[in-house]
């Protein structure tokens, strides 16, 4: 099936199995390997991308779902001014440890700061509650997002 969509602000078309996972399309067809597979069942958030501006776990999204839509990965978000700001904040707090979950956290945090943006710890915790991190104990992640809310 022909699937046309916008990937990191570029129009693209692929011919693929409509049930193929968005995660595989991003990684295999476009070599954007920032999006990671941690569990393959929506339970960890390492594969989070934005679909029409909303964070989704790309391991549970099929090719057919993205036809005519916009997909943003961590690579795309890193080019946006707000993405750059977030990266600065994560860098400044030394929040990143192994980093495997962080592209996912970047995507979800970007969505939070962009759509809500209130410097509110409870809200931030809730917004990030679909992303699992095993290294950090999350506190430095909260600190980074709070910092981004303040600076944005």
């Amino acid at each position: 099936m022909k699937i046309s969509f916008k990937l990191n602000n570029k129009n693209v078309t692929i011919d693929t199995d409509p049930m193929r996972r968005l995660l595989d399309i991003i990684r295999e067809d476009f070599h954007l390997t920032g999006t990671k597979e941690g569990c393959g069942e929506g339970e960890c958030g390492a594969c989070t991308v934005l679909l029409d501006g909303k964070p989704v776990t790309s391991c549970l999204v099929n090719a057919v779902h993205i036809d005519g839509k916009e997909v943003m990965t961590s690579e795309g978000i890193a080019q946006e001014p707000l993405g750059k700001l977030l990266i600065d904040c994560f860098d400044e707090t030394n929040a990143v440890q192994c980093g495997f979950c962080f592209p996912g956290f970047l995507v979800t945090s970007y969505h939070y700061v962009k759509t809500d943006g209130e410097k509110n710890l409870d809200k931030i915790k809730k917004a990030l509650s679909g992303n699992i991190c095993r290294c950090t104990g999350y506190q430095k992640i909260f600190e980074s997002v709070m910092m981004a809310c303040e600076r944005n």
Binding site: T33, I87, F90, D91, E92, N94, A95, G99
Partner: peptide, 14 residues
């Protein structure tokens, strides 16, 4: 700061 934080965030770290 960690030398690898930025590439880990933007997804370029392998």
């Amino acid at each position: 700061r960690k030398f690898d934080a930025r590439p880990k965030l933007d997804g370029s770290w392998k």
